[in-house]
């Protein structure tokens, strides 16, 4: 599924990022980069972020372009699959959430809520490669 998300996003990356004119703000990478997250907290943050995208991002990303909309919904479906798997990990206590992940997620929500919903959703969608680069690097 992550590979499908990656290829779906690659197809619409330029289109979505062009809709985000704000260079000076990021949802995921600043002020604190995902890449600084400790190993212990990665599973929890990954789970929180997949929930974040399903609950707060995809539903606000409607465009006038049907091709882009189809790609967004297929990405969203792949997210649901991964989200369910991560949910199972959490149920089996293999995906514990500590103080750092709570802080990190709070920062991401603050970045998101600093913009109007549509801008924040499009910016988050345009940062999917930041999420995927981090998820794939964390293995």
């Amino acid at each position: 599924s992550v590979t499908e998300i990656r290829s779906g996003f690659t197809a619409i990356k330029a289109n979505i990022q062009a809709r985000d004119p704000i260079r000076t703000l990021s949802i995921l990478s600043h002020p604190h980069s995902l890449h600084k997250v400790k190993l212990l907290d990665r599973c929890c943050i990954t789970h929180q972020l997949f929930n974040f995208y399903v609950d707060k991002v995809f539903k606000h990303c409607k465009t006038e372009d049907s091709f882009v909309n189809r790609k967004i919904s297929s990405i969203a479906n792949s997210f649901l699959i991964v989200k369910r798997k991560l949910g199972q990990c959490q149920e089996q206590n293999k995906c514990l959430c500590g103080q750092e992940s709570a802080e990190k997620y709070k920062q991401i929500l603050a970045n998101y809520e600093g913009l109007n919903v549509t801008s924040a959703a499009i910016k988050s969608l345009g940062e999917l490669d930041i999420l995927l680069d981090w998820v794939e690097k964390s293995g």
Binding site: R23, T24, L25, S26, S29, H30
Partner: peptide
Amino acid sequence: YSVYGVGK
């Protein structure tokens, strides 16, 4: 040039 997410 600029780093994405950084303001300058």
